[in-house]
Simulated assay, not measured.
Amino acid sequence: MAKEAKPEAAPEAAPPRKSKKLLIIIAATLVVILALGAAGAFFLIRKHNAENAEEETAAETTKSKKKGGKEVLPVYVAMDTFTVNLVPESGDQFVQLILSVEVADAPAGERIKTYTPKIRNNVVMLLSAKKASELLTKEGKEKLAGEIREQMNHVLAPGAKEDDAPVKEVLFTSFIIQ
């Protein structure tokens, strides 16, 4: 009978060892899974934050300047079509252009509308003194845009410095030379 007691004691001791090993394996597996989940979440959040930072940087570059902490959107004023005879080089030539003007603020846009006859006169005089060959190149168009900007600023705010001038930029929306 003593022999029978020993085998009974041995099987009772063996299951607790297996259950301890099983618990250790399960605990280790859970720790590894949690560590992988935390690492994955960390990298996903990091990637998401990097994408948001890139979007914010892109948004800041497209926004116009801020004034007093508030965003100031650009104000554009569309001008009527200009059709002007150019200085003849080889027969009669003319330019037809449509432009929009970026101004500092809405009141400056209203001032452009008030002074439209004088501004149009100055632009027509400026254009009529040009040759087609001067206006065909990109540099010629950029120079013309600068000259039109100066003419407009001279009418709207004589003596204003370039940074304080109401007209910020002249943009051509159509430019045809025939």
Results as ranks from 00 to 15, higher is better:
Met79Pro: 00
Thr83Cys: 00
Leu135Ala: 10
Leu34Thr: 08
Lys3Ser: 04
Gly146His: 07
Ala35Ile: 11
Glu55Asn: 12
Val170Asn: 06
Glu147Trp: 10
Lys143Asp: 08
Val32Pro: 01
Thr62Val: 15
Ala78Trp: 00
Ser19His: 03
Ala10Glu: 12
Ala53Asn: 11
Glu142Arg: 13
Phe94Ser: 07
Ala39Phe: 11
Thr83Glu: 04
Ser90Met: 05
Ala104Lys: 12
Ser90Asn: 11
Phe43Pro: 06
Ile33Met: 06
Ala10Ile: 15
Gly91Glu: 00
Lys143Gly: 02
Val124Tyr: 02
Lys131Leu: 06
Ala157Leu: 12
Pro74Trp: 07
Pro107Tyr: 01
Ile176Ser: 11
Tyr115Met: 13
Asn85Arg: 10
Glu110Met: 10
Arg17Cys: 02
Ala35Val: 13
Tyr115Thr: 04
Gln151Tyr: 01
Thr173Asp: 13
Gly37Trp: 01
Asn153Phe: 09
Glu54Gln: 14
Glu150Pro: 01
Gly69Glu: 07
Pro107Glu: 04
Lys161His: 10
Val31Asn: 04
Ala106Trp: 00
Ala129Pro: 01
Pro74Ser: 10
His154Asn: 15
Pro117His: 08
Gly40Ala: 09
Gln96Glu: 06
Leu126Phe: 08
Ala10Asp: 09
Met152Asn: 03
Thr57Pro: 00
Lys18Tyr: 09
Pro11Asn: 05
Leu86Met: 10
Glu89His: 00
Ile119Leu: 15
Phe175Arg: 12
Pro117Arg: 11
Arg149Tyr: 01
Glu110Thr: 12
Glu142Gly: 04
Ile177Val: 13
Leu30Gly: 08
Lys47Gln: 13
Ile24Leu: 07
Gly159Ser: 07
Ile177Leu: 15
Gly69Leu: 08
Val77Pro: 04
Ser128Ala: 14
Glu60Trp: 11
Lys66Asp: 11
Leu171Arg: 12
Leu156Gln: 08
Ser174Phe: 01
Gly146Trp: 09
Lys20Phe: 08
Ala9Pro: 03
Pro107Leu: 04
Lys113Pro: 00
Arg46Ser: 14
Lys66Pro: 00
Ile176Asn: 12
Val103Trp: 00
Lys65Leu: 14
Glu134Ala: 06
Asn122Met: 09
Leu156Tyr: 02
Phe43Asp: 11
Lys161Pro: 01
Thr62Gln: 15
Ala165Gly: 13
Lys143Ile: 03
Phe175Ala: 09
Phe172Pro: 12
Phe82Cys: 02
Val31Ser: 11
Leu135Ser: 07
Asp105Arg: 06
Ile148Tyr: 09
Leu171Gly: 01
Phe172Lys: 11
Glu150Leu: 14
Ala104Cys: 01
Gln93Met: 10
Val32Gly: 00
Ala41Leu: 13
Asn121Cys: 01
Pro166Arg: 05
Ala59Gln: 15
Lys141Ser: 08
Val95Ile: 15
Ser19Met: 06
Ala157Ser: 15
Glu71Gln: 13
Pro107Val: 06
Val95Phe: 02
Ser133Glu: 05
Glu169Trp: 00
Ala5Gly: 06
Glu51Trp: 14
Lys113Val: 10
Ser174Cys: 03
Leu34Arg: 02
Ala157Trp: 07
Ala104Met: 05
Ala35Ser: 14
Thr137Trp: 05
Leu30His: 01
Val77Leu: 03
Asn52Tyr: 01
Gly146Cys: 06
Met125Pro: 00
Arg46Ala: 11
Ser174Pro: 08
Gly146Tyr: 10
Ile45Ala: 08
Ala35Met: 12
Asn122Glu: 13
Asp164Pro: 02
Ala78Leu: 02
Ser100Thr: 08
Ala41Ser: 12
Glu71His: 14
